[in-house]
């Protein structure tokens, strides 16, 4: 027998358990609510950005430098946004400074179990743009703009940008 509820919260609980529930809405009408799962595995190529992820597995961080105008990016970018020319790969220093930061106490479902975590934009000497990463090993009250940080790399790569993260320089 399908169960009926007057509160939508109870409907949500019931469909997680038994796949379907009836909701008696404020107008007195019955709405049938069902659970509808969805999963997919994409075949994802990093294409022109591949070198960045390969180098992460070797403990190296790469950005891009424009061949024509010399603009230096803290992220991979195969063509320059300033002048449209091709860029060259440029190895980034492993030490930088916090350009901006936050501590996330909530997150998307995928990262909820990792909260709280710190996000930082890291700026590198002589590079025009920063790099988005995690800051590990520091609490909210320890972090400030201008703080010295250095890159560390995951021992077992997952071939994701999160294979690199930053820690405070002690």
């Amino acid at each position: 027998m399908i169960k009926k509820f007057g509160k939508f919260k109870d409907v949500m609980k019931e469909i997680k358990k038994n796949g379907a529930a009836l909701y008696e809405d404020p107008s007195g009408t019955e709405d049938l609510v069902i659970s509808s799962p969805y999963q997919i595995n994409y075949i994802h190529s990093y294409a022109e950005d591949s070198k960045f992820f390969i180098e992460l597995t070797k403990g190296k961080l790469f950005g891009s430098k424009c061949r024509k105008c010399g603009y230096k990016y803290g992220t991979p970018r195969s063509h320059c946004m300033e002048c449209g020319s091709e860029t060259d790969w440029m190895e980034l220093p492993l030490k930088g400074k916090v350009h901006s930061w936050t501590t996330c106490y909530f997150g998307s479902e995928e990262f909820l179990k990792e909260t709280p975590f710190n996000l930082v934009l890291v700026e590198f000497d002589g590079v025009n743009t920063p790099f988005l990463s995690r800051l590990v090993g520091a609490k909210t009250e320890d972090i400030y703009i201008g703080m010295d940080v250095k890159a560390e790399f995951k021992k077992t790569p997952r071939y994701l940008v999160s294979d690199v993260y930053f820690v405070p320089v002690k």
Partner: peptide, 8 residues
């Protein structure tokens, strides 16, 4: 992948 969250 760093922790995709708009509020962040």
């Amino acid at each position: 992948p760093v922790g995709g969250f708009y509020t962040g």
